[in-house]
Computed example of a mutant assay.
Amino acid sequence: MSHIPENAPAHCPGTQSEDAGKTSACAGCPNQNICASGAVSGPDPAIEIIRERLSKVKYKLLVLSGKGGVGKSTVTSLLGHALAASSSDVGILDADICGPSQPRVLGVSGEQVHNSGSGWSPVYVSDNLSLMSIGFLLGSPDDAVIWRGPKKNGMIKQFLSEVDWGELDYLIIDTPPGTSDEHLSTAQYLSKAGLNGAIVVTTPQEVALLDVRKELQFCSKVGIKVLGVIENMSLFICPSCKVRSEIFPATTGGAEQMCSDANVTLLGRLPLDPLVARCCDEGRNPLTELPNSPASDALKKIVDS
């Protein structure tokens, strides 16, 4: 009987099938080339290597959203800052291969990654907050990463298996929009590493919720626990007069209604604050720059929950 790898894509033909690595279901699978060559009879050996590499990381979290432009990278950086402020050791892995923004958001653009006998060393934003991103490996911030799926999958595998994070309380993985190559690869590579779950980010309007619902379905199909949903840009707060306005109206009930329908937890809402956006553009920590802002207060409640 043909072996079906754990967390394989739907309709996987199995490693011993004549169609292994050749069907449309195989597209984007990290094992596609190996299966097609007939050289595999079990799971990717990198899965066990990754399990050992991340064995000293207590909690491993994905930040997901089926929709682009909802502020996923901003939310990831804010969560990293907030958890680090609580004296936790935090690592952030920027798995958005084609759009790495974490070096800029966290204020470490231009830094370089060093390699040693124990692997790649992440770049430290502060004493207990570190980052790994392909942005550190590019010659210029304007360089485009024009790669097909297998090469992106290989980069994610390399990040997960070769970065020396040391002992961490949290590893937060910032993913690109969608439910394709990078997401399938990350889920498969972490299948034995004790992935704790995903935090899903959305904005209130229906055009975003349409794609975010697909992300919830993706998590269900590949066995990723949804820890909760964060509604970003929930309200616009004027930095001068503090008046609150709905920039993205929740015409279908917003994240609250979606969470009720999908039976998942709404962790909280983050307002759209231009001052927070400016801090992220300039690589400054909004929690220390704007400690009493509505966005900082809302984030603290989300982290507490």
Rank of each mutant, 00 (worst) to 15 (best):
L106M: 10
V145L: 01
Q16T: 06
S121V: 12
L64S: 10
T288H: 05
D261R: 15
G14L: 02
M258I: 02
Q16V: 03
L275P: 00
L78Y: 08
V125C: 00
Y124E: 04
Q158T: 06
V108K: 00
R53H: 09
P150A: 09
V201F: 02
L270R: 06
M233L: 10
I156P: 10
I172L: 12
A27S: 12
V105C: 02
G71D: 04
S118M: 11
A25L: 08
A250V: 06
K60M: 08
D261L: 14
T186A: 07
G139H: 09
V40M: 14
K301W: 09
P294C: 10
I97E: 06
S17R: 14
V243R: 14
D164G: 04
S87C: 14
K242P: 05
K22E: 09
G194P: 05
V243W: 12
F218D: 02
S88V: 03
E231A: 07
N292H: 15
V264R: 05
K242Q: 15
M1V: 14
G119M: 04
L267P: 13
Q158L: 00
K225A: 08
S86P: 03
M155P: 01
S126L: 07
V108F: 02
C35K: 03
D94R: 02
R104E: 09
L168N: 00
S87H: 15
L168M: 08
A39K: 14
T23W: 00
A8C: 09
Q102S: 08
G268S: 05
D19T: 04
T265P: 10
G119R: 05
I134V: 01
I146M: 12
T288Q: 10
P150Y: 04
G228D: 02
I237Q: 03
D273P: 00
S130M: 05
R104T: 13
H183A: 08
A95Y: 03
S121A: 13
T23R: 02
N128Y: 09
K67H: 01
E256F: 12
Y189G: 05
G228L: 00
T23V: 09
P122L: 00
G228Y: 03
A36M: 13
V75C: 01
S118N: 13
V243Y: 12
P204T: 01
T251K: 15
K22V: 05
A255C: 06
A85K: 15
D261A: 15
V243I: 11
S245M: 12
G223P: 13
G28I: 07
V57T: 13
A36G: 01
I97L: 09
